[in-house]
Every structure is written in C-alpha cells, then in structure tokens.
C-alpha cells in the first residue's frame, strides 16, 4: 500500500507540473513576462515565473496526501501554507525587486504556519548526542530556518537547471534518508515535492526553455525547509543543502552584506564571445559558488550546471552518511 501511495503521489506531482509548464510558459509569454538568458551568446528571451507550475504540483500532491493519509494532514497543511507564503514573497520580489534584508525578513513569515499548527517536533535528533529537547528554542528557530532555505535556494539559481536540479537531488536524498530511518510517511511527502521539482528540471535544464522566477525558487526553498522542520532530520537537511547555504553565506560576506545588487559593482562572472563563461578577476566581485567553479578555467554553462549538481550530489551523499550516523531512538 505504501509503495502504491508513493507511486501515485509522485505521479500526481510530476504530471501536474509537467502538463502545466507549457501552458504557464505560454501565458507568461503572452503577458510579456520574460527574462533574458544572459549566459547565451544570442541572449534569447525565456518565459519567466514559470515556477508557478511547481506550486501546482506541490499543491495537488500535498492535497492528495492530506485527503488520503490522515496522520499527514497537519504536516501537509503546514507545508502548503509555508509554500504559499514564501511564493507570495517571491512574487513580490519578481515585481518589486525587494532588498536582501527585506527578503530575509519577509521569508521568516513562512515559518509561522508551522508554529501555529504545531506541526513540528521540538526534539531534533543530533549526531553523537541523540534526541534533544528544545521546547523554547526550536519554535523560535523555525522562521529563521525557513528564511535561510528560501533565500539560499533563491541565491542558488545562477545558471540553467542549477536550482531545480539541485532541489531535486536534495529532496531525493531527504526522501531516502527518511526511508532509511523508518519514517516512511515523511518519504511520501518528499516524493510529493520531488515530483514537481524534477518535472520542472526537464524544462529548466540547459538550454532552459523556462525560468522559475523568484516565485519558484522561494517556493522550493520553503518546501524543503518546511519539509525538514515538520518531518525531523534537521541536521541531514542542513548537510544536504551545504553548497546552497555556503554559497549564500559567501555572497553575503563578500558581496556587501544585505545591501543588495546595487552594492555589487562588479559581477562575479562574465560571458565570453566563444560561448564560455569566465570568473571575473577582480577582488571587488563577490565570491560565489559559480565563481569558485570557474576559478581554474572558463567553462560552458552546461558544465557549470553539471558541476553545481555534482557538488549538491556530493553533499547529499554526505547527508545520507549523516543519517546513518544518527543514533536511532537516542
């Protein structure tokens, strides 16, 4: 029964997203909501904000779980509300170009539904320590955690397929981690989220036919954050997201903090005429993960995307090792 549920929930999420992508892309094209793919020599126009299709995938599959598995209803409701709030912040950022500090503060709101619905267990499992009781500190940390994941995913979308591909890898590893630790119902939620990001990756990978927009990246970040907070294995989630979290931290610490794009006078990378992308050799440019990837030599956009995904896969494997290290029943 569990396997059937897993297949059905994944199929619902995957297919609804896959079917809705072309339609939403057409709608965005019609409305003139398009972005320029700056890393391509011919600078093509690509439909923006098509990440809305992932929202459809998340919502349909989570509503299915809400209706069919009563024990998951509270979790699904909390995740749905968190995703909805984060996507509104992303939508606002798409239209108003919010400052980084504003994005960080607004994204904390997506943690509130989880606190109000009490869809969390304030006893996280920590390697070497076991279960710890954080009755006061845990709920206080939830908005911060959601803000970190949302903004980290938002800042990890530099090349085609990097955000959707890395989110798929992270969600797949978390799904496996929950299955390894016997939390099969949490694995179902993971599959519900994975289906949408994976379907979107097929359209967003190099050469991208659609862009997710901030609405998509914020929703994905909140989906991962709320999934981990409501289902446990917090440390495993942090390890899986190490490249994204460290990339955001490096950008903030070397690129003018919360001052925003205006404070960055020099871009970290630049496209060359031969189609390759190189790291800008200027100490004023922020130290991003892509700039680190390009430190050795100029690379093609697809190579950068593959390297980005390989790094996420590496950290995901480390997260699975961490899941095995966790003391069961500690």
């Amino acid at each position: 029964m569990l396997i059937i549920n897993a297949l059905v929930v994944f199929a619902i999420s995957f297919l609804t997203t896959l079917i809705s992508i072309p339609r939403i892309a057409l709608f965005m094209n019609g409305k003139g909501i398009i972005g320029i793919d700056v890393h391509k020599p011919n600078k093509p126009n690509v439909p923006e904000m098509v990440g809305v299709s992932m929202l459809i995938g998340f919502f349909t599959s989570l509503v299915f779980l809400f209706l069919t598995i009563p024990e998951l209803s509270n979790t699904c409701l909390a995740i749905l509300a968190s995703i909805a709030i984060a996507s509104l912040v992303g939508l606002l950022d798409d239209f108003r170009d919010l400052s980084p500090l504003c994005k960080v503060l607004l994204a904390t709101l997506s943690g509130i539904p989880i606190i109000f619905l009490r869809a969390y267990n304030p006893r996280p499992m920590i390697p070497f320590i076991g279960r710890v009781r954080l009755t006061i500190a845990y709920p206080l940390a939830i908005p911060l955690a959601l803000s970190v994941t949302s903004n980290a995913m938002n800042m990890s979308d530099p090349v085609n397929g990097a955000m959707s591909g890395s989110a798929s890898i992270i969600l797949a590893s978390l799904t496996v981690a929950y299955a390894l630790t016997g939390k099969y119902s949490a694995s179902l939620v993971g599959l519900a989220l994975l289906g949408a990001t994976l379907a979107f990756y097929f359209y967003n990978r190099y050469p991208a036919r659609v862009f997710s927009g901030n609405v998509g990246s914020f929703a994905v970040g909140a989906a991962i954050g709320s999934f981990v907070v409501t289902s446990g294995l917090e440390v495993v989630g942090v390890i899986a997201m190490l490249p994204q979290i460290l990339n955001s931290y490096m950008i903030l610490s070397t690129g003018g903090g919360f001052k925003g794009k205006k404070a960055i006078t020099v871009r970290p990378t630049r496209p060359l005429e031969n189609g390759l992308i190189e790291a800008v050799k200027d100490q004023r440019a922020p130290l991003t993960l892509v700039r680190m990837i390009l430190a050795g030599s100029a690379k093609h956009e697809s190579e950068i995307a593959n390297e980005f995904l390989a790094l996420t896969l590496f950290s995901s494997i480390l997260s699975l090792v961490t899941a095995l290290i966790l003391q069961p029943g500690g």
Partner: peptide, 12 residues
C-alpha cells in the same frame, strides 16, 4: 586557487 580570483588584475 582562489588567489587567481582575488588578485586584482583588471577592473571589469
């Protein structure tokens, strides 16, 4: 390795 990036060469 990072020195290749942080060494000031040409402003762009």
């Amino acid at each position: 390795i990072i020195g290749k990036l942080s060494t000031y060469m040409e402003p762009v």
